[in-house]
């Protein structure tokens, strides 16, 4: 076994190589050791295991909006009147900041289901309760920083970058939807 490191062409020794290798291995090891700490801050099992939520649509009158809780988030269910649907389908895609047709956002036109969280900074837009501001486009209005959503929950004016999100849901029967 060689006890003295032979010099290579550009003056680097075997000791330099071992030095760099040891430091690199330590750095990688330290990086890996950090991961459990970082990962512990991700949602825990019980948070992830939040079940699906069923919503009974039968008591909701035409023109009425209700709010239900799913994964600790408010979900807006809007039983839209025909004129509201017409407004939503009538909007030209070129007028939209986040272009999407109304048909892409609903399973059945009379039922609009949205996550009721402003896509700007997470406030709950107004418009669910009678007498609240609906904004300039008849949908929802976020009071925090002035975002206006239309009758399809699409962003029309204000700082929000995206339309109100449509959660994954399905119709179990004609009067029940399942969220999640």
């Amino acid at each position: 076994m060689a006890t003295t490191a032979p010099e290579t062409g550009d003056g680097e020794t075997r000791r330099d190589f071992i030095f760099v290798a040891a430091i690199s291995a330590t750095a990688v090891g330290a990086g890996l050791a950090v991961w459990p700490f970082v990962n512990s801050m991700n949602p825990s099992r019980d948070v992830l295991a939040e079940s699906t939520t069923e919503v009974d649509l039968s008591p909701i009158e035409e023109g009425q909006r209700i709010t239900v809780l799913w994964r600790k988030k408010p979900v807006f269910v809007d039983h839209r009147a025909p004129e509201k649907i017409a407004e939503a389908t009538g909007a030209a895609l070129s007028d939209l900041k986040d272009p999407q047709t109304d048909a892409d956002r609903v399973l059945r036109p009379e039922w609009l289901v949205l996550i009721g969280i402003c896509t700007h900074l997470g406030c709950i837009p107004q418009g669910q309760r009678v007498g609240e501001r609906l904004g300039d486009f008849g949908g929802w209005f976020c009071p925090c920083h002035g975002s206006h959503y239309d009758t399809s929950g699409r962003i029309r004016k204000g700082p929000a970058p995206k339309n109100l999100e449509v959660p994954p849901y399905s119709f179990i029967d004609d009067t029940t939807i399942q969220l999640g």
Binding site: P43, K73, G122
Partner: peptide
């Protein structure tokens, strides 16, 4: 807490996972 943590959701690509990580859930809780 909601407004300030949502600032991080503006970061392209990783924004949403980052806020979920900050919250430890799907909303401030």
């Amino acid at each position: 807490a909601t407004v300030i943590t949502n600032l991080f959701s503006a970061i392209p690509l990783i924004g949403d996972s980052l806020t979920t990580w900050l919250w430890g859930g799907f909303a401030v809780d």
